[in-house]
Design a binder for these strands. Structure first.
Lengths: 110, 110
DNA sequence: ATTATTTATTGCAATATTACGATATAAAGA
DNA sequence: TCTTTATATCGTAATATTGCAATAAATAAT
């Protein structure tokens, strides 16, 4: 028990759920917001920006990296994180399709 | 420990995270897909459609109801669930804004 | 070589999520 | 009224997530 029954669902459903899960934490949204704002691909002074411990931020960064939404390049002892543009657009259109699959037809006639 | 530090983030960040969390499970996406496909606002033969137990489906429906993305109307002993159109559009534009806040400017120059 | 800086990882505690059987509730039909 | 049908809720087990201190690893600076 307690484990998601992925085999019951389609590839698409599982994938969209995974992406949503990556976004489903305010810290990770804050990280993305900050990476977007400071286009220059800022590293982990996210620890100062956001009020969480260094280990926690690092963990959130890893989760974002795992779904491919950000990428990091080593620069001396620091690491430059930034949005992965292609992946971002991919995810963007995934969500777009999801939301548009409904909007077409219906009024709330329930 | 173990509890999300919501006070560190903005209203917007917390809200978007909550919505993402509602979508962040393939069963809930499958439910939404099914409600969209059968416009006629089908009730809980979702239990047959999806392979999960009745109690589990009911729990997922509640979570979707709690963020307002679906609504249910009692109809005898059954309940008609359907997408809540206005909320859907609200969420749609929230995600749209989020994804568009980046797409404007950047290439993956990291 | 030693020390400082930056990030990742490990281990652990607190809490949340997922799933389901059992049971409760409530209306419909016999 | 009694039974059936449909849904919700409760209790509980298994697993996942969140957060942090401590520590490791790796480069830079002295």
């Amino acid at each position: 028990m307690g484990v998601t029954q992925s085999h019951l669902f389609t590839e698409d459903q599982n994938q969209l759920a995974l992406i949503a899960k990556a976004i489903a934490h305010p810290a990770r949204i804050a990280i993305l917001h900050h990476l977007i704002k400071t286009k220059s691909c800022i590293n982990g002074d996210l620890v100062l920006e956001i009020g969480l411990a260094q280990a926690t931020i690092s963990q959130h960064l890893r989760e974002l990296k795992e779904v491919g939404i950000i990428q990091g390049t080593i620069e001396g002892t620091k690491i430059n994180y930034c949005i992965h543009a292609e992946k971002w657009n991919e995810l963007k259109s995934l969500f777009q399709h999801f939301f548009e699959s409904y909007s077409a037809c219906c009024d709330s006639s329930c």
